[in-house]
Nucleic acid binder design. Structure first.
Length: 602
DNA sequence: GTTACGATGATCAACCCG
DNA sequence: CGGGTTGATCATCGTAAC
């Protein structure tokens, strides 16, 4: 398979970057012409029409169901059934029971004696409606609005309008949704509202003359965490705009935070049900901070096929805490940890600190490793505060408290008499499970190393979850790694001994891409690494191209930006709709495309 | 590059009330 | 005693102004 012209082409790509920035010289040598032509034909038309609005609503109204939140609708439309038929089938069966929906659809299409293919939404059209570089325009608007505080609410509405229109909804629908739900509603709420309205409308048209239809079954039989449902348009009208969350039980974090199990602990979960729409292939693995604002994890879970998130604190894997939520459709049986097991306490990890560690500092593990470190001035203040009590056995309690508080806040360790210091970058690398000097060199500054590391996976934790893939893919896997950062997923798979056949790695930061490429070369990988800069560049055409080339992706990994979610952000903790964190929807978009393309080529 | 800078939500203990 | 409330305590893949 990997011989002949195709293989040749891969080799050509192997050592170039397809990043949009600063590769002008190299680009000329790349055989990308064919793809570029494709794009010229398909993309600009689609994205421009949707950005300048005219005629879009007519286009989309006919297909009736919007593309994003109505995943089930989408799923079946993607299979080639008409939107009307899908709406009808869902109305009849309820949306939980995909089996019977499919059955109804098959019956309906048989009745109409026209095979689904005739209603089949053309692949390219549906994809190109989907894509576009809308977030570029989005962020431009955003930065403009930052200068004028008074203009903010207006442009916020504009942003959401544009986002919704780019997702494929009509301008009218988007406007109605924003008006109904309020300008501060999340994209998820807005899309839910639109799709509820669409389904309701479609059903009215189709089924208005059938008074004795069976009621949708099984809407209450779903599990606690499987709360996704659609609202009747009428029901929506009566409700106040923001009460969507109220009856939707917010996901609670488990205590202890061990997810579906960690090594050497009793497994709290022996079996879990994965919704049918979520089943692999491909397998997917999504990560973000556990302590996100309320409702964020509900939204993430709802988009990712109603899979229950697994919340795990990495303190069960290494000497530092890292509370994260993972949404994945991997089996949870027979997981195994990476060996050797990393140290679980600070003393084991940094034996030299033991000598200076005062007895009144009772920490045994570190807090979450962040992107910033404590300042030199702070460690100096601590030293001076302690030196005042040098002769005594221990400083007074208020000094102890000050020192401990700062040590906890900044993850300081004892490196000398009265002397604390932040961790060195290589120490952070070790704690996170990366090889020493993983982020070193290649023109990266110390600050950037901390930043890249602070944004990364904890390798042992992720590897434990991914370990089940080893037996399933003895020949290796094809990996699509979004927001891959310094390559946490790649390193985890490699350390598990799972060969990496083809890896498409997407990250906006050039230094991160360099780190991954450098690691790739250092570890003598036999496979192919392709790096892209921007998840928004990854459109249907390009995905299709890669999937044809590789025979599909086995695993789609991604941890989308958390900076608008984390509590340590005082300025722009805007939730999932924040400027960066909104890229979560791109993870969903791409994952859904991968699933669609895989289903089609089956 | 360095040093400033809180707010949100989770957890826990104490408390109240019926 | 159980459930709910209140308040103290703590942690947080960060950003803005120098």
């Amino acid at each position: 398979m990997f011989e002949g012209p195709i293989y040749h082409q891969i080799i050509v790509h192997q050592n170039i970057r397809m990043a949009g920035d600063n590769c002008g010289v190299e680009v000329d040598n790349i055989d990308w012409d064919t793809e570029d032509e494709l794009e010229i034909e398909n993309i600009p038309l689609a994205s421009h029409t949707s950005l300048t609005f005219p005629g879009v609503e007519a286009n989309m109204a006919s297909s009736s169901a919007g593309p994003s939140n109505t995943k089930i609708v989408d799923h079946f439309i993607g299979m080639g059934f008409s939107a009307k038929m899908v709406a009808k089938a869902i109305k009849e069966n309820g949306e939980e029971n995909t089996d019977s929906i499919l059955e109804t659809l098959l019956t309906l299409s048989a009745l109409e004696s026209s095979p689904p293919k005739q209603q089949h939404v053309d692949t390219d059209d549906s994809f190109s409606d989907y894509e576009g570089s809308f977030l570029d325009d989005f962020s431009d608007l955003d930065s403009d609005s930052e200068n004028e505080a008074t203009a903010k609410p207006v442009s916020d509405v504009d942003n959401k309008m544009m986002f919704l229109v780019d997702m494929g909804y009509s301008e009218d629908e988007a406007y109605a949704a924003i008006e109904r739900c309020g300008a501060h509603s999340s994209i998820a709420e807005l899309t839910d509202f639109i799709s509820a309205a669409q389904i309701s409308k479609a059903a009215d048209v189709l089924l208005g003359d059938l008074p004795d239809r069976p009621k949708p079954k099984n809407l209450n039989g779903c599990s606690k965490l499987n709360k996704r449902r659609h609202y009747d348009y009428e029901a929506w009208k009566k409700k106040k705009p923001r009460c969507f969350d109220d009856d939707d039980e917010t996901i609670r974090l488990p205590n202890p935070m061990i997810g579906f199990g960690v090594p050497n602990e009793l497994c709290p979960t022996l079996h879990r049900k994965i919704p049918e729409a979520a089943m692999g292939p491909p397998y997917f693995y999504y990560e973000n901070v556990a302590l996100a604002p309320k409702g964020v994890w509900n939204t993430i879970s709802r988009f990712l096929y109603d899979v229950e998130p697994e919340f795990v604190d990495s303190k069960y894997f290494c000497a530092a805490a890292r509370k994260r939520g993972y949404v994945h459709n991997l089996p949870i049986h027979n997981r195994f940890p990476l060996l050797p097991l990393p140290p679980h306490t600070v003393h084991e990890a940094f034996p030299l600190t033991r000598k200076w560690w005062p007895s009144w500092d009772t920490r045994t593990q570190l807090n979450c490793l962040q992107t910033c470190i404590g300042s030199a001035r702070l460690t100096d203040r601590i030293r001076k505060a302690l030196e005042d009590y040098d002769g005594e056995r221990a400083p007074p309690l208020h000094v102890q408290k000050f020192v401990i508080d700062q040590c906890r806040k900044w993850n300081l360790v004892w490196v000398g008499k009265n002397k604390v210091a932040p961790l060195e970058p290589d120490e952070v690398e070790m704690l996170l499970g990366f090889p020493k000097n993983h982020t070193r060199g290649g023109g990266i500054s110390r600050t950037d190393r901390y930043k890249s590391l602070g944004n990364s996976f904890q390798v042992d934790t992720v590897a434990y979850h991914l370990s089940v893939l080893k037996d399933m893919f003895p020949g290796g896997i094809n990996l699509l790694s979004l927001f891959s950062g310094i390559g946490g997923a790649e390193v985890a798979l490699h350390r598990l001994g799972i060969p990496l056949k083809n890896v498409v790695s997407v990250d906006i930061s050039e230094v991160n891409r360099n780190i991954v490429r450098s690691w790739w070369e250092q570890t003598n990988q036999k496979g192919t690494l392709i790096d892209l800069a921007d998840v928004q560049e990854l459109d249907a055409d390009r995905l299709q191209y890669f999937m044809n080339l590789f025979g599909g992706f086995d695993l789609v990994v991604g941890g989308s930006p958390c900076n608008n979610l984390t509590g340590s952000n005082r300025y722009t903790r805007d939730g999932l709709e924040g400027k960066e964190s909104i890229l979560f929807y791109d993870y969903f978009r791409i994952l859904d495309l991968v699933k669609c393309i895989a289903t089609k080529t089956e």
